[in-house]
């Protein structure tokens, strides 16, 4: 892992941009520190007590100079803000076709599952060059998924999905840290992210036992928890059908609020419908759904269910 003594590897598409902003910041720091240092040292040497420098009518205040060192830092600050905000915005808007991997953080390990059903602990294998989006949730406290080489970090919150995307641009093994203090073994909650050539990645994907893709495992869970009883075709209890619902707009009524507003059925909505079913009820249905907390349906299984619902959504878009 040969690298510059001051920089980690630049292994993701936007690592260079972040380093550029950082270097600009360090440049400004170096400039102003040097400016202050030189000014102070010259004044100390020239005007130390006992020297015969000319000292009368030194100015006590001058509006022009004050405005000078208010204006220039202001311009630099706004420039730095704008540039870093643009790079930050790019970090927060992943490409639509990004490859999706689920991350479930729990006290002191990262559990990752690929759409093809592959599962890893504290390890993440990614192919070179393909943008990757991580959909992350925590089962207990706040963690933080941090890969220094990709200059990417995002806290993993309990009860809410947060996401992070990057596009690996260099093959190799890089550190994966938990950056948010999460308890006793926070220090050992570490792992590695391995960026591989696409061919090696396919071979790795094929190897090892595979219980089928995430969607298929989701379908098995769908049967195991008898979701079909209400949401399936038998409909012995009226419940909103799930075919083609993912990504679409769902009319939702909220008790006490006459207007029905539409929300998009994204991951958050499905997660909340399972964990807190009474929060947003589909128009025209009774709030009958039982709540499934983490003991009945772990976060990893819930993500599999979402993958399954997403898959049946894609097949029948007739609705």
């Amino acid at each position: 892992m040969a690298h510059l003594p001051f920089f980690p590897e630049q292994a993701s598409s936007h690592a260079k941009d972040v380093d550029a902003v950082f270097l600009a910041g360090m440049g400004i720091l170096a400039f102003f520190t040097a400016l202050i240092l030189i000014l102070i040292v010259t004044f100390l040497v020239r005007y130390r007590r006992g020297t015969t420098a000319e000292r009368d009518n030194a100015p006590n205040t001058s509006l022009r100079i004050e405005l000078l060192w208010i204006g220039i830092p202001l311009i630099i600050s706004i420039g730095m803000f704008a540039w870093s905000a643009v790079v930050y915005y790019r970090l927060y808007s992943p490409p639509a076709d990004a490859y999706l991997v689920d991350v479930v953080a729990k006290q002191w390990m990262f559990y990752l599952q690929h759409p093809e059903g592959k599962r890893e602990i504290n390890e993440l294998h990614v192919p070179l060059g393909r943008p990757l989006r991580l959909r992350m949730i925590s089962q207990d406290v706040i963690h933080s998924f941090y890969v220094p080489a990709f200059r990417a970090k995002q806290d993993v919150l309990p009860g809410r999905y947060t996401s992070l995307w990057f596009q690996p641009t260099r093959v190799g093994q890089y550190h994966l840290f938990c950056a948010e203090y999460c308890g006793t073994n926070h220090a050992v909650m570490r792992g590695t992210v391995e960026v591989m050539e696409p061919a090696d990645y396919e071979r790795w994907l094929g190897s090892g036992s595979s219980e089928g893709s995430l969607a298929r495992q989701g379908e098995q869970l769908f049967q195991k928890h008898h979701c079909g009883g209400c949401h399936g075709p038998s409909q012995n209890v009226p419940a909103p059908p799930l075919q083609g619902v993912y990504g679409g707009r769902v009319p939702v009524t909220r008790e006490g609020d006459p207007s029905t507003n539409f929300i998009t059925a994204d991951d958050r909505y499905i997660h909340d419908s399972v964990r807190l079913p009474k929060k947003e009820i589909v128009a025209g249905f009774e709030p009958m759904m039982p709540t499934y907390d983490q003991t009945e349906l772990s976060e990893a299984d819930l993500l599999k269910l979402i993958a399954y619902i997403k898959s049946i959504g894609a097949e029948e878009t007739s609705k």
Partner: peptide
């Protein structure tokens, strides 16, 4: 001297893109 360095590294931390990398 030290406050100048401390203050300006604060500026680097305040720029969003770099903070993502160096937070915590």
């Amino acid at each position: 001297g030290l406050f100048t360095i401390g203050g300006l590294t604060g500026l680097i931390l305040a720029s969003l893109a770099v903070d993502v990398h160096v937070h915590d």
